[in-house]
Design a protein around this nucleic acid. Sequence first.
DNA 1: TGTATGACCATGCAACTGCATATAGGCTAA
DNA 2: TTAGCCTATATGCAGTTGCATGGTCATACA
Lengths: 148, 148
Amino acid sequence: MSNLPQQEAMWGALSRGYTRTRGALEGALKSANLPGLDVFDALNVLVESETQLTAKALEAALLMPQYGVSRLLDRMEKEGFITRVANPGDQRSKLLKVTKSGAETHIRMKRVRDASLIEFLGSRARPGQLMRMTRLLGLLDYTTDDAN
Amino acid sequence: MSNLPQQEAMWGALSRGYTRTRGALEGALKSANLPGLDVFDALNVLVESETQLTAKALEAALLMPQYGVSRLLDRMEKEGFITRVANPGDQRSKLLKVTKSGAETHIRMKRVRDASLIEFLGSRARPGQLMRMTRLLGLLDYTTDDAN
DNA sequence: TGTATGACCATGCAACTGCATATAGGCTAA
DNA sequence: TTAGCCTATATGCAGTTGCATGGTCATACA
């Protein structure tokens, strides 16, 4: 007994739910002439972190491939949102520093994204449902430890 | 009272859950030297449909932008998976026909994807949890009818 | 301490995506 | 019928992504 039908249905719902939600947020940012969600997520992680992070740390936090992070940071640096400064503890990596402009952009993006989230999710799910979804989706986020 | 914290948590969990699951499926297909999930999804819709579909219909089914579908079909046609034949009822569009090779590829892809789905989801969620997730995620899939 | 091995990051190239726009057929009303 | 408008699809261009690989520093250990 394999549950495949239920698994297929779940994957379909997950995919559609993700696409719809992401579309709403991206659309809101675009309409406001702001950078995309990837930039927001990176800024958000960097701003919220206590310590100075490296690209490697972002990789884990954003669930993004190494080259993806590298180039996202390239763009963000070019836009003046971050700088990469020497890492005293390890010369292979750089520490990521959010600039003043980056911090300001983060604030503006957060306002737009939050409003969009509230509108989209608020009109579709009640608080209890959100909590249950969060808990259930958390099940998917554990890697059955594949040495990698 | 805005529930923003719960909404943010939910969006984070959704995003991570989607990325992880998608990664598992894409990885499995790639390892098997098969086309990507986008090709599979398109083939799956076409094969499963009773009637001959147009690109426009795929657009809705796959939640993909118009130009995305157009180019996905270009690639699939070039690979010999589909053909676009004249639509008697409307000369603006073509009807999409899955070739023999396309149907065979679909079968092989389905085997790999299904195995991957069973392994990934089976080890993370029990049937009841899958059902609850599916139902809850369905809440996100309704467009509050924005004329579009 | 020299060398093998691995970790962290950058990048050339080909493929793919988003955006804006173009093309062509269909539909409606005067 | 025909002008005006809508629908279905394609595409040029710039920007982004994936893959494979290369460069640099860190670390273990013989």
